[in-house]
Design a protein around this nucleic acid. Structure first.
Lengths: 192, 192
DNA sequence: CACCTACTTAGATTAATATCAAATTAGATA
DNA sequence: TATCTAATTTGATATTAATCTAAGTAGGTG
């Protein structure tokens, strides 16, 4: 799951009123006024909190005449709750990435000039991963970068920043969401 | 888990910086300055966030000379994340509490006077549960009550509010934490 | 003892947000 | 159309909280 999504999810649960709403909805669908009554709050407050819960996909709703029955999306709740646990259990890469520190150093030595330029791009997957890993060292985990900034950053390694950027995406070192880039924590856990 | 504990837990995870810290710590122990460097933040900020995470039991630490190595309490993370899912799955009570609406009404009729006073306290466990359930109807789920207020509330049913209060605790309809009382959501889910 | 390094505390600033009253919208009904 | 009910929007208020600088603390080393 996306890092920001995870934050929003837990922010949604990090409020007593909303936890109480989830508690109520676990028993079954309920409409707004009923919730307001049971929780001792005013309708606008319920609207506010339902909106927060809806934003992270936790609310399903069904309309009957004037009344809207809200219910809990249990599946979303489960997935959201477990996301924080599964993070860092990146699968395949562990297999191929048994690279000693010496190997890694040798690869870096081979593919980068003394002033940090990338000489050429390795074809062998293992070496490619080492090179990509090396290049993202200067990026912050969890920070969201606009495309322009990523280009600027990658230019320090090679003129053809577009290729580098594409490789980072394809090897899942980063992911893109509406032209913003972010390091992919799931794929990066196994790195030191 | 206590409702408030759950809120604090998710509040702790509802912040990008702290999620990033958890991400880092999943890779292994780390000291404060290193975190500050990796996340692009100042040491006081790290202290602040580590404190938040520590408050909900997510941080273990080990001192080596001047340096404190923080690590993640994975067990606490798992338990905290799953708490929201297990809520409402109260175990034993489902067995004995197959009580029809008619049965319930009859029990209430038998044990309460017309003006809502409790005539006497049922010995049979099933009836006791119905009676207790009936009495907590006027309490708000998730609200924390000082003991004095609980006493006041229970007095409307019987002079011997202390016995009622004790039964509510013993049958786990409420729990007490430093003289404050709260409805126990885990035990109450199976009630409508 | 003086000094260094890592962490913490205090205080200030700024941003986010929980709640409600008042006004508004939307659907249903008479 | 007039009216009722449930939900939402708007705007105000008060609280919480994230971050930093500056100052302080605590353990180790010369």
């Amino acid at each position: 799951m996306q890092l920001n999504k995870m934050v929003e999810f837990h922010k949604a649960l990090g409020d007593l009123t909303r936890i109480r709403i989830i508690a109520l909805l676990k028993q079954g669908p309920l409409h707004g006024q009923a919730m307001a009554g049971k929780l001792g709050l005013k309708p606008p407050t319920i609207t506010h909190h339902i909106a927060k819960l809806r934003e992270v996909g936790l609310i399903k709703e069904r309309r009957d005449k004037n009344t809207i029955y809200f219910s809990l999306n249990i599946k979303a709740l489960e997935m959201g709750a477990k996301a924080i646990l599964n993070i860092g259990m990146g699968g395949e890469n562990n297999m191929e990435m048994v690279v000693t520190a010496e190997e890694r150093n040798a690869i870096i030595q081979n593919f980068f000039t003394k002033d940090g330029k990338l000489k050429n791009f390795p074809a062998q997957r293992k070496k490619k991963l080492v090179v990509l890993e090396h290049m993202i060292n200067g990026l912050e985990m969890g920070k969201v970068y606009p495309e322009k900034e990523i280009n600027e950053y990658l230019k320090q390694f090679h003129e053809d920043y577009a290729t580098l950027r594409r490789e980072l995406i394809m090897c899942q070192f980063m992911y893109r969401e509406n032209n913003q880039y972010e390091l992919n924590p799931v794929e990066l856990w196994w790195l030191r």
